[in-house]
Design a protein around this nucleic acid. Structure first.
Lengths: 125, 125
DNA sequence: TTAGGTGCAAAACCTTTGCCATCCC
DNA sequence: GGGATGGCAAAGGTTTTGCACCTAA
């Protein structure tokens, strides 16, 4: 049975309040303001628990460190090549795969992961 | 001026001969058969150089370790959720973004990164 | 000759884990 | 009380780097 603790609540609250998609490190730095002696281990462990319970998502695109996200519906992201920040795509996205060139590969797709790369507003200047 | 060395040649050759998208570790293990005392540092350094010269690509998709690839044209990948192997998509892919919900975000897209996740032939049984 | 590469080992980075104390139900 | 969590620090896996030596051009 998952249990309610102030650490877990604080991490989840930070993710929900924060439309950015922070890394574990950013989560740690922020939650720390509230719970000064929280540890890195706890942040990572809690993120894994929340993820298993489908309360958050880990963005499984590009790079280390991972980014986390409290939105659990299927959606895609913009990612800034310069500052590495991640933003949700609210536009409608359609992905069409045509042709049968890959038939013999026999790959069975279950879901797509898409990232639109470029520059965010702040980094264009 | 980049220089031609047997280490660099061997790494590039392995990537070209090999349609898979190996990790640095896999590259190391294989190139080692030819150049027994090549080091990890050299593999990573060489991969960075090749990447900078646009001779290879680093797949900046999910997870650590990175996968590398000698195909430098824009293309997308299948990725197996079970064995983590990566395959090129040869089918035609079209990505359409409509709507203007994201106008105020002011994000300037330069290129998309797409991964179709699922199970490869070998992992479906 | 000499700037770029190499090998080796240590360091850096991100993440996970072991151990034991602590807290929630 | 007892299992789920937390804190801390150490370990693990991947990648980078410093340094001295080497080698292609």
């Amino acid at each position: 049975m998952p249990r309610k603790t102030k650490q877990k609540e604080a991490i989840l609250k930070f993710l929900k309040d924060n439309k950015s998609h922070p890394t574990a490190d950013e989560i740690f730095e922020n939650v720390r303001k509230e719970i000064p002696n929280i540890s890195f281990g706890t942040v990572y462990r809690t993120l894994r628990i929340l993820k298993k319970n489908n309360e958050i998502r880990e963005l499984d695109l590009s790079g280390r460190p991972s980014h986390f996200n409290s939105e659990t519906k299927q959606h895609y992201h913009y990612r800034c090549d310069k500052c590495d920040r991640v933003f949700d795509i609210d536009n409608t996205v359609e992905i069409q795969v045509s042709n049968t060139a890959d038939e013999e590969k026999g790959f069975k797709v279950t879901y797509p992961v898409l990232e639109l790369r470029g520059l965010c507003k702040d980094c264009q200047t």
